[in-house]
Each structure stands twice: as structure tokens, then as C-alpha cells.
């Protein structure tokens, strides 16, 4: 565990906390894509099937359970909580996310490290995570104005991806046998998706103005 990896995990955790805080404090999920949240729940459930077969560390097990539980809690809030549910605008959140699920699964059937149940679901979760933010980014772009907490949520998620790339560079330089092409290539693709958002996030931060994405 290096400092980039730890910082990445912490910003990931922070992003989820920010989102939960936003939903809890405002009793609203306006600006939040339910589809992205459902994709993340699928990502964690598919990837952490190894909770039952492999033990890495207490830290790993703990974080896996936190990610699964928090992603399910967010989906639950948006789908079931009476007040939060009311604030969900399904007309803005129209991305056909099942296409992402189907495409990721198809890719995992062809591109995986081993043809086993766990490995295929692992590869699937990696591909799906890479594109899971798309419904959220499209929703933000369509609604134009982004409230502070939602903006910070996406910012921390993007920071987490950026830090993971630094972590891989560090591991590549310090661990002689570190080769993890599926995760690294997907990770770079995923981070690139945030480039546009980051550009506007920094502009609004520099000008001390509200974050606005061009239509």
C-alpha cells in the first residue's frame, strides 16, 4: 500500500460520504444520476465476489463491505425513500445504462485474465466502472447548473481515479512484476472521461463562481 493508493481510496470514500451527506442533508437527489449509482452498485457486487474466496487484509475486506453497503444505501434512498424519491428527475436521467452493462459484460467474456466465473465478473466490473460515470456526466451537462455537493462528489471521484493512476506508476516502478493491463488501461480511459468536467471545475474554482457545464 503506497500513499497514492491510500489517498485514492480515501478520496473515493470521501466522494461517497459527500453524496450521502448531500442526500441526507437536503433530502434530495437532484442532480444525482440514479443510473450511475446503480451501475456502481453492480460494479462493487460483481468485483467483490472474492469476499467469500480470498482474504487480502482487514482493510480490504472492510472497504469492500463499506463500498457495497454505501452504494446499495444510495440506490435505496433514490428508489425507496419517500422524500428523496420525489426529487428524482427521471426525465433528465435518460442514459441507456443497460447498454453499458451489456457491452461491459460482452467485453469481459472476450477480454479477461482467466476464463473463470470470478475473473470474468472481475473484468466486467472493471469495464463497467470505467464508463459508469457517463449517465452522471450527461445529467450534469443537461441540467447545466451543478450544486456544490454534487460537483464535489464528481470531483472527488475523479481525484480517486487520478490517484490510482499515480499508484500504478509507483507500483510499476517499484514492483518488478507489476503488470495489470486490464485495470490500468480501463483506469486511464475512466480518468479521461473526467477531463472535461475537471476543466470546468477548475475554471469555476479559479473564478470563484458556480460550476456550470456548457450544454
Amino acid at each position: 500500500m503506497n500513499i497514492f493508493r491510500l489517498a485514492g481510496d480515501m478520496t473515493h470514500l470521501l466522494s461517497i460520504l459527500v453524496l450521502l451527506l448531500k442526500i441526507y442533508a437536503t433530502k434530495s437527489c437532484s442532480g444525482v444520476s440514479r443510473k450511475t449509482q446503480e451501475l456502481y452498485a453492480i460494479v462493487f457486487l460483481a468485483r467483490y465476489l472474492d469476499l467469500f474466496t480470498d482474504f487480502i487484509s482487514v482493510y480490504n475486506t472492510f472497504m469492500k463491505i463499506v463500498f457495497i453497503a454505501s452504494s446499495l444505501a444510495i440506490v435505496w434512498c433514490i428508489r425507496v425513500h419517500p422524500m428523496v424519491k420525489r426529487s428524482y428527475d427521471k426525465d433528465l436521467d435518460t442514459f441507456r445504462h443497460y447498454l453499458l452493462v451489456a457491452a461491459s459484460f460482452l467485453l469481459a467474456l472476450f477480454l479477461h485474465e482467466k476464463f473463470t466465473f470470478l475473473e470474468i465478473f472481475w473484468a466486467f466490473s472493471i469495464y463497467l466502472e470505467a464508463v459508469a460515470i457517463l449517465p452522471q456526466l450527461v445529467l450534469l451537462q443537461r441540467s447545466g447548473n451543478v450544486d456544490n455537493l454534487t460537483g464535489q462528489y464528481v470531483f472527488f471521484l475523479g481525484a480517486y481515479r487520478g490517484l490510482y493512476i499515480l499508484n500504478w506508476i509507483y507500483r510499476y516502478l517499484t514492483e518488478p512484476r507489476f503488470t495489470r493491463w486490464i485495470a490500468c488501461v480501463s483506469g486511464v480511459v475512466q480518468t479521461a472521461l473526467y477531463a472535461d468536467f475537471f476543466y470546468y471545475y477548475f475554471i469555476s474554482w479559479k473564478n470563484n463562481s458556480k460550476l456550470k457545464l456548457p450544454a
Binding site: N60, E113, R180
Partner: peptide, 10 residues
């Protein structure tokens, strides 16, 4: 260890 067996990242 092989390439695949160390899924130590989250």
C-alpha cells in the same frame, strides 16, 4: 505469485 492472483486493489 502470478499476475492474476493478487487482486489487492479495490
Amino acid at each position: 505469485s502470478s499476475i492474476t492472483d493478487a487482486k489487492d486493489e479495490l
